Amino acid sequence: MRLHVDQRHERVLELVRERGSLRVAELASELGVSAVTLRRDVEALAAQGRVQRLHGAVVWPGGQASEAPVPAPAAEGAVIGMIVPTTNFIFADIVRGARETVEAQGGRLVLGMSGYVDTEDPVQAEHLLAGGAEGLLIAPSWFGGVPADGQEKWLLECPVPAVLVERTAPAGNPAAALDRVRTDRAHGAAVAVGHFAKLGHRAVAAVLQEGPHAAQITAGYLAATESLGLTPVPGSPAIRGHGEYDETVQYLVDAVRERGVTAALVHSDEDAIVLVPRLQERGVNVPSDLAIIAYDDEVAGLSDVPLTAVAPPKRAVGELAAKLMLQRLAERASGGTPAPRQHLELLPELQVRASCGAGEVSDN
């Protein structure tokens, strides 16, 4: 028979009094309720001072109980909030990696979405915190990938640990002191340019989609073309808004016919797939006239001409961000000195397909 909330509270108190402390997951199982319901019960009892709540465990106040077992790890029963601008594109795998990691440790990931509206980030955070989130994994809707005009202020005032995901903050900005996990997109761009160079291309253009990752990809592209002694291409990288295909096609056609360009890095996959048939309509064939490497490797392999692509380690980003958060929660639970903050950068790999020619060599 299902217990009334008051009966359930009395049973919780009885069990905790007898055993000193219990894991939330064990207590929920014994009472036949969900972990979410049990956490609400514990929060209510803790607010009344009748029990103490630790991460993943319930303890009798003052430790006046017999044989209190060692509390569970912080991950057990932890609720972690995650805010992303969308669950499309790279974020689908990032969220999946974070969710699987949290659930494998007995916790729960709760998702909020900002829709690329920066003012929505704190609204989503407030909602998640009100629902019991003990930490936040967040990819803020910072248009350039870094905070501007004080966009980071609310995050610095957040009362729980926060880990930036696929975002950064420049040195000197207070948000630079936050933990963060991201892809080294500059490295990915450099790998792409290096692959072109190995294939004999000397003039390599770049067309990038404006947004959070454009600055990193630009930096890698420019550094690689300079260090490899490639021919500078006027106007590259060209930064375009999503859907500005006519201008992009014209830029690449002119680059091929007037500047001797034989290869191009295109971000993103979707843009590259749209561009290939449009270029062919203008007499520029892929890969015979123009070799292409796409960036993101979401759907690059599904193109009519399968596209060689830079593949960020998306799922691994989510996994490591979640592990870092679980570490921070464990540190809080133990009351010990926290480890130094971490800035983790993961390296993309190149997935070689047909869009640079049949004689492509793998860099992996």
Rank of each mutant, 00 (worst) to 15 (best):
E126R: 12
P313K: 13
L13C: 04
V146A: 11
F91H: 06
V102G: 03
A192L: 02
V284N: 11
A219Y: 03
Q280H: 15
I94Y: 00
P277V: 10
G145V: 05
V146F: 13
L38K: 03
S362Q: 13
A197N: 11
R341S: 10
L156A: 06
G359N: 07
R353Y: 10
A186L: 06
G211E: 02
D363P: 15
V266R: 05
D271C: 01
V299K: 11
V276Y: 01
S236A: 15
G220V: 09
G62T: 10
R2W: 06
V207K: 00
H267N: 09
H127N: 08
E10L: 15
R167F: 00
V361L: 15
R2D: 08
G62V: 10
G318A: 12
A25D: 11
S303F: 00
A206Q: 05
T337L: 14
S29C: 07
V102R: 00
G56L: 04
L111A: 06
A205W: 01
L128V: 11
R202I: 02
G188Q: 09
P71K: 10
P348H: 09
V123W: 02
R315K: 14
P170G: 01
A190Q: 12
V110F: 07
A294D: 07
A203C: 11
A130P: 01
L350H: 04
P234S: 08
P306M: 11
G336Q: 11
E247I: 11
A139P: 01
Y116R: 12
T87A: 07
Q250S: 14
Q216A: 14
L228Y: 03
G359Y: 08
G357W: 09
P71I: 04
G63I: 07
G49W: 06
S355H: 06
R39V: 02
G283T: 01
L344G: 15
P232C: 15
P237F: 02
L265M: 09
E26T: 13
P313S: 12
L27S: 09
R50Y: 04
A47T: 05
L290M: 15
A316D: 12
F91I: 06
E319T: 13
A192V: 06
S66L: 14
P140Q: 09
E120M: 14
E319G: 09
S362F: 13
D149C: 11
V317E: 02
A139W: 01
P159Q: 14
A263R: 02
S141F: 02
W60H: 02
P159D: 12
G188C: 09
E120S: 15
E345W: 08
V117Y: 13
G241S: 12
A98I: 07
V117H: 11
R2Q: 15
R180L: 13
A219L: 08
Y251S: 05
S236R: 12
